[in-house]
Design a protein around this nucleic acid. Structure first.
Lengths: 363, 363
DNA sequence: TTGTATGCGTTATCAT
DNA sequence: ATGATAACGCATACAA
């Protein structure tokens, strides 16, 4: 690890000069000849600043704390983490990740530890796009919520556009010529739970996707039929409910909340000798990547590139925490900055790719 | 964030004394009265050392770099990361996670960045338990491989006990009274790939689970039958192959490499009016948690608690990197330490939970 | 038994 | 235009 000191020695200047040059603060302060010489030897030696030592002075580590509860164990979490990492890297940040297993006490401790490591801010990963009440101990560091919104409306958040998912899926079936399109949602005992606690009577994603389904039908001038919309949980009851729907309404298109629900459609179709993709069409969000991995392309026409794994497929987190002075221009492509969240004039800039939306408390 | 300085001021001693006491180096060097006073005010102020500042002197950050390629996007990765984090936390480490997307150039850069952050060592996460050739740039920091082994036999690694998975699954069906047990493996175009490149002609996990299946049968005095063992990929060809097996051999038990393969068994059974759990039994590794989430317990008897999500369910990574002097006693429950891997007398201690095994180059 | 001095790599202030 | 120098929080050799 080459240091500024070495560069200074090799160039025959002082460390201060090296610091000035390498931080781009040499305009009119360091002779251009010297400056370029410093830059060259830095390059030659492969110099990279030590962010930890730097943080001792600046108290900016370029490290973000990534906090997740159970999310880390779910199949979609990987891509969430991936997106966050990609975004962080592209802006020169690193992610220090912890998980709390839904344990409040542990969470408190982990947050404290992250602060110990002088993180510049937090990424707080939730589930189900639900309204959460993030712990006060996150303050005063800037924080962005992922797949969840702040109950108190203080923190910025990034959530997928669930309505659009339901809408697009339904459009697809309409355009494919389906005449009778069903919606298979989640229900029964399958309720959104966080560490064993039921936190709502329906999955927010299910509600929104269903609404997208309804809106697409309306927009196309179709009738909507409550009998075509069911909510099932798992196992035999779910299979029975879907079977009943098959025989009672004979739909030729299915919008499924997720692959778990699509599963029963496949089984029912198989039991009746129907072929998916010919006799009936199924579109659903493939949380687990199982349907698309195993039955596509022949048996299904699942193709929702903008969501991919459904929940978090292309959610590229590009919300990042930057400390800037208030008079800095907003970064290109960003939305209006949020109000300051710390004494150091910290601001949060949120940018959004694809069709995911960002909740901006400032509006 | 309270510092040693504050404690020193409040206690009326110097920072050095505080440092001595708080690091437990006060035996016979600091008056017990002073020492306890220091400890008390440290407690009162909620002092926690700044590991970054400390690292400037000790060059030990208590941070481990967690490097993964595509693994982060797969469904089982979440639990791997979880296990690593839990283990790290329990030993006072944090994880700085990066992903390389299988890009060698990016990998080089990320490793360099991690070194910049002065990580104490690396966790190098692989896939498929394959033999890999980790980049030289990891050196000289101690490194542990996850779900992969070192081609050159230098690095320690942790891998799941795949043979045991196949063995247990088969035993279960034998004990359930199945008379004809099939093995559905992976084959065809479904080859282990890393960033698009085929890296073997079969999944190592598949090979090992299949061997476990064979060994369980032999041990039970059963005949093995090559016709009962097939390897399928996806879609129609897979379905056709399983259908053929169903009709040709009429097995009443199935050991499936993974849930994707079990899927076809379910479909075939449904098409024939057979009920899983009564007419035929299926045991498989549920990578995606879809089978167990949706069809258990009524339709399946999948119950392999020691593997849970199959690959990485209970793989609690407790292999951790510790810098210790050579004369330190081995930690309780650890295996024999590996040879030093750096100039600083670094050693790697590996402990193992459940039935996963650790490859120990020192043996 | 305790305090002082020094250094880790960096930034920032202030002389020169 | 450049270079000492101090400071960030901590550890440690050495002086007292």
């Amino acid at each position: 690890m080459t240091t500024m000191k070495e560069i200074a020695e090799r160039t025959g200047v002082s460390v201060s000069t090296v610091s000035l040059v390498l931080n781009g603060r040499d305009a009119g302060r360091v002779k251009p000849g010297i400056a370029s010489k410093v830059r060259k030897t830095a390059e030659d030696l492969g110099y990279r600043p030590n962010p930890l030592a730097r943080s001792l002075r600046t108290s900016k580590t370029k490290i973000l704390g990534f906090i997740s509860d159970e999310i880390a164990t779910t199949p979609y979490a990987g891509r969430l983490i991936l997106g966050a990492q990609d975004a962080a890297r592209s802006m020169g940040y690193m992610l220090l990740t912890v998980n709390t297993n839904g344990d409040v006490e542990l969470e408190r401790h982990e947050i404290s530890t992250l602060k110990q490591y002088d993180v510049d801010g937090f990424l707080y990963a939730c589930m189900f796009d639900r309204a959460v009440d993030p712990p006060d101990s996150l303050e005063p560091l800037p924080t962005v919520l992922l797949d969840g919104t702040d109950k108190r409306g203080r923190l910025a958040s990034i959530v997928p556009d669930e309505h659009r998912i339901g809408y697009d899926a339904t459009r697809r079936l309409i355009e494919a010529g389906c005449r009778s399109i069903a919606y298979i949602g989640a229900g029964g005992e399958d309720l959104p739970k966080v560490s064993g606690q039921v936190i709502a009577d329906r999955y927010p994603a299910d509600v929104l996707r269903e609404q997208g389904y309804l809106d697409a039908l309306h927009e196309a001038g179709r009738e909507t039929d409550p009998d075509l919309m069911i909510r099932v949980s798992f196992n035999r009851p779910a299979l029975d409910a879907v079977s009943d729907l098959f025989d009672r309404k004979r739909p030729d298109g299915f919008v499924c909340f997720n692959d778990a629900r699509a599963w029963y459609v496949y089984l029912c179709a198989a039991q009746r000798g129907l072929t998916i993709g010919r006799d009936v069409s199924v579109v659903g969000v493939d949380n687990h990547r199982l349907v698309s991995d195993t039955l596509a392309p022949e048996l299904t026409t699942v193709d929702l590139p903008h969501y991919e794994m459904g929940y978090w497929g292309t959610l590229k987190l590009v919300s990042i925490i930057e400390h800037r002075t208030p008079d800095d221009a907003a970064l290109p492509g960003t939305r209006s900055p949020l109000p300051d969240l710390s004494e150091t004039n910290a601001m949060i800039h949120c940018t959004l790719l694809e069709r995911h939306s960002v909740a901006d408390p400032a509006r």
